[in-house]
């Protein structure tokens, strides 16, 4: 069935409420584009669905095929078919892409994938994404350019074959040719499976390649408008100002800019970093 349902979702980070009652339903084989100005909750939405521990759900429900997603650990969410292609993929020195992916594939299957099948599949996907041939033996994202890291996320998606792929600004850092390549790879998997996609992007170019079936604008923690790919085109042409006016939404003041933080560091949260 592969139906993701989000109802009245409220999420806070530390003491700041980011999502303020968000509703969204994603059915099998749909492509949803999530748009909106920076700092209004797009990445928060994806990170919350995936279970980032910094994002606290204070109210609402997320279900996947009627299973309570919020009750699951992060790895369980992945195993039921949710995939997050990250905006800032982590570097993991010492762990090769090959070992990493085999562990990820084996984690979701009762039987381990055979080495022969794994290599064959990985090589084919490396070629499809025009990545370096030695990728399998390189450490995960270690020393990768921004574009290579994003392609590597897509490689992981192709190998893990999720039910719902959430792609957080996966097109940033990619040049024009790479954007086409990545979009083609995503659409190829989409055509061959029941995959549904949630994509956060600021660029109409990427969205026009993916041809979303639905488009949503997220402002101040809520979806304020939904439509189809024409809405994405209009936003690309006219920006968001018309939406603020039409819907009578007050713009955020600069001191309400997004919180920037990282897990596991002693750095204080930084507001408006200079």
């Amino acid at each position: 069935m592969n139906k993701l349902k989000i109802e009245d979702l409220h999420v806070k980070v530390e003491d700041k409420e980011i999502l303020k009652g968000l509703d969204l339903e994603i059915n099998p084989h749909e492509i949803h584009a999530i748009m909106g100005p920076n700092g209004n909750g797009k990445s928060t939405l994806l990170q919350t669905i995936m279970g980032h521990p910094k994002y606290i759900v204070t109210k609402g429900k997320i279900t996947f095929d009627d299973q309570d997603v919020l009750a699951m650990s992060v790895d369980q969410r992945s195993k039921i078919g949710l995939f997050l292609g990250m905006q800032y993929p982590m570097e993991i020195g010492g762990v090769t892409n090959s070992d990493f992916l085999r562990a990820a594939i084996n984690a979701r299957n009762t039987e381990n994938i055979s080495l022969f099948k794994f290599i064959k599949e990985m090589d084919a996907n490396i070629q499809k994404l025009k990545m370096k041939e030695d990728l399998a033996h390189r450490f995960v994202n270690d020393g990768f350019s921004g574009g290579e890291k994003k392609r590597n996320e897509i490689l992981q998606m192709l190998m893990l074959k999720p039910q719902i792929a959430m792609l957080d600004e996966i097109d940033s850092g990619l040049d024009v040719d790479a954007i086409k390549l990545v979009a083609d790879a995503i659409l190829d998997l989409y055509a061959k499976s029941d995959l549904s996609i949630m994509v956060v992007s600021h660029y109409e170019r990427f969205l026009s390649l993916l041809r979303p079936t639905h488009c949503h604008v997220l402002i101040d923690g809520k979806i304020v408008m939904s439509g189809d790919s024409e809405l994405a085109a209009k936003i690309d042409k006219d920006g968001y100002d018309w939406l603020y006016e039409e819907l009578a939404i007050a713009k955020k003041s600069p001191d309400e800019a997004p919180l920037v933080f990282s897990l596991g560091t002693c750095a204080k949260n930084v507001r408006n970093p200079k």
Binding site: V74, R77, F83, M90, A103, A107, L263, G264
Partner: peptide, 18 residues
């Protein structure tokens, strides 16, 4: 293990033990 790295691995289905 860095918590961000662990979260990243978890998002791909790799739990703490793996």
């Amino acid at each position: 293990i860095d918590e961000d790295v662990l979260f990243y691995m978890n998002t791909k289905g790799i739990d703490y033990n793996a």
